[in-house]
Design a protein around this nucleic acid. Structure first.
Length: 593
RNA sequence: GCUGGAAUAGCGCAGUCGGUAGCGCAACUGAUUCGUAAUCAGUAGGUCGAGGGUUCGAGUCCCUUUUCCAGCUCCA
């Protein structure tokens, strides 16, 4: 059996054991059991139980599971008719619903574990519990979940467990989880003084001096690339009259997610109702519309990083990953249909360059026409075909996923999922074709035959949101940003106050070369000064004492180790810094060649 | 929004049965003038998230509320 299948079989089998254990603990008649699938690192099972399960119960449940495994019971599959199955699961409402929802011709099978536990299941499973005895499992957590993911239906207790083939694998996985927790940007952010939140602005980050340096450096890098590709940045009103949202369609589809300022009469029905923008597109449409356009002007690329606000359900907020106020590296490009292909190729090329700069690998997903699509089906077909062609060319046929029917109602899209240092995936980049918004705003251009045509709009963001992307970078780099992106790139430590004079000369040289530094001229112990910079993960700590001052050199302490580079000529050090800034190097260099 | 947890000094934490709010780091003051991640001594710092209740007495018990966390659902 292939190992992946093996994982599936035994994880899923263990979920049956969990259910059996729960039955024995709470009494079969007191438990409603729903479903228990395997997941990436184990399995879960959903129940309705007579009381809340908590942490203190975990050991007891695990022990019960082990006790059950030791019985070495046989697992037997039984095929039965719908009527028999309904009879068997009488009183179990979720199982009953599952059976009733099965298609007429579906084979119905159940699995017995011993004589006294049965679950509706497609299988396959182990033949005897004995096979599971070597597996390592551990109850991880319990949380709320809804029956069939629907918040209007029964609320269930979901018991999660880790499960691996052996103890070593479980241990390795737990180490990975621990590593992820140590990288948590919600912990590192405040620790490194990058950003903060306050309860008076829920889900709206404060960028602190250090974090704002990272933010601006990132944006500066982004602007540099986009300038080369013919992008023009604009900035537009944050608060707009309701009228704008009526044209764009947001008022009909998105009003519940918008922060609204009611009109003078206190209602949102009033004509003078305003709202904070949740997206930049309508404003970009207005900017395009300000004058007539010739086909010769296209493509026109209006990029925008204005702050947007989206009201979210409170429980959905999550550090920088999910906020209510953020900035996207947004752009709206206006093109003729014939230009779509080249334009998207260019965008994907930029994405590739950017992600590589951070050492992030990624994969693409194509989402195609949904059922409730708008516009001309021919245009959709052509667009999807050309997107496929581009993706085939860039990543190779079959090297990207296709999500049929998952596109937006206004056009197909390509999403880019990036992978961080721990292999976790994040949706960041998105490239969406839009046939609808230009129509809503009655945008046109004059074609070469003199006719009025409607441009196609390409919405695209590559970081996704600067906030989320920086959150990902914090975790990816564990707070130790590459030199070029570090809030402060150099920390200057004069050993004694008498070295301040030369230290200030070094500082002046760094400043003149726009290298970001901090210096501590106080009479503190040099160890304390070094510790401070190390805690902030400053890439280079420059030590200055008698020798350096005399010879016009610096000694460097490199981040991530106690490695020393002694007596580097000051100019050489400056050149090293400039080189890393220019090349956006991922690693700290220790020499100029 | 839902389920479950949490909130005590700037940060990390302790606080037993309801009985005078504590520790470490950081901060501040002084001494030390130092060659690579915690020098020594001292000082100050609290409406125990907020509001209400029970009690002679509440950080501790009860109610309401805010924010955060783990999930669910939704998303960049």
């Amino acid at each position: 059996m292939a190992s992946e299948q093996y994982l599936e079989v035994y994880r899923h089998s263990l979920s049956h054991i969990l259910a059996k254990a729960i039955f024995e603990i709470f009494g079969k008649e007191n438990v409603q059991y729903a479903i228990g699938p395997q997941i990436a690192d184990g399995f879960y099972y959903d129940f309705i139980l007579p009381r809340q399960v908590n942490k203190d119960d975990f050991k007891m449940i695990e022990n019960k599971m082990r006790e059950i495994l030791k019985r070495r019971e046989d697992w037997t599959e039984k095929e039965m008719s719908r009527a028999e199955a309904l009879e068997l699961f009488q009183g179990q409402k979720f199982k009953t619903e599952l059976i009733e929802d099965l298609p007429e011709d579906e084979r119905i099978t159940v699995y017995y574990t011993g004589e006294d536990f049965v679950d509706l299941c497609r299988g396959p499973h182990v033949a005897n519990s004995q096979e599971l005895m070597g597996a390592a499992f551990e109850i991880r957590s319990v949380s709320g979940a809804y029956w069939r993911g629907d918040e209007h239906r029964d609320s269930l207790q979901r018991i999660y467990a880790y499960a691996f083939p052996d103890k070593q694998a479980l241990k390795a996985h737990k180490a990975l989880i621990k590593e992820a927790m140590e990288r948590d940007h919600k912990k590192l952010g405040p620790q490194l003084d990058l950003f903060m939140f306050d309860e008076t602005a829920q889900g709206m980050p404060y960028w602190l001096p250090r974090g704002w340096r990272v933010f601006n450096t990132l944006l500066e890098y982004w602007r540099g690339i986009h300038d080369l590709h013919g992008y023009q940045e604009i900035s537009a009103p944050i608060i707009n009259n309701k009228k704008l949202w009526l044209i764009s369609g947001h008022w009909a589809h998105y009003v519940n997610n918008m922060f609204i300022i009611p009109g003078k009469d206190g209602t949102i029905e009033a004509d003078d109702t305003m709202a904070a923008k949740p997206m930049n597109c309508p404003n970009a449409m207005m900017a395009y519309k300000r004058r007539v356009h010739s086909y010769r002007d296209l493509p026109i690329r209006y990029s925008e990083t204005d702050v947007v606000h989206r009201k979210e359900k409170t429980g959905q907020l999550n550090g920088l990953f999910r906020v209510q106020m953020f900035r996207q590296d947004d752009d709206h490009t206006f093109v003729m249909e014939s230009q779509i292909e080249d334009e998207i190729k260019d965008v994907l090329g930029i994405a590739d360059e950017i992600y590589q700069t951070f050492g992030l690998s990624y994969r693409a997903e194509l989402s195609t026409r949904p059922e409730d699509f708008m516009g001309d089906i021919e245009l959709w077909n052509e667009a999807e075909a050309s997107l496929k062609k581009i993706l085939d060319g860039m990543y190779g046929e079959g090297n990207y996923e296709i999500n049929e029917g998952d596109g937006a109602f206004y056009g197909p899209k390509i999403d880019l999922q990036i992978k961080d240092a721990l292999g976790r995936e994040w949706q960041c980049g998105t490239v969406q074709l839009d046939f609808q918004l230009p129509r809503n705003f009655e945008l046109t251009y004059t074609a070469n035959d003199g006719s009025e045509r409607v441009p196609v709009v390409i919405h695209r963001a590559l970081f996704g949101s600067l906030e989320r992307f920086i959150g990902i970078l914090i975790e990816h780099f564990k707070g130790a940003f590459p030199f070029w992106l570090s809030p402060y790139q150099v920390g200057i430590v004069p050993i004694r106050t008498e070295h301040n004079e030369y230290a200030k000369k070094v500082a002046g040289k760094l400043a003149a070369n726009r290298i970001r530094f901090e210096a501590d001229y106080s009479d503190k112990n040099m160890k304390e000064k070094i510790k401070y910079y190390k805690n902030f993960k400053t890439p280079y700590v420059v030590i200055i004492g008698d020798k350096e001052a005399e010879e016009g050199t610096v000694s460097l302490n490199l981040r991530g180790s106690n490695r020393q580079l002694n007596n580097i000529p000051l100019d050489t050090f400056i050149q090293m810094c400039l080189k890393m800034n220019a090349e956006h190097s991922l690693d700290l260099i220790d020499t100029l060649d």
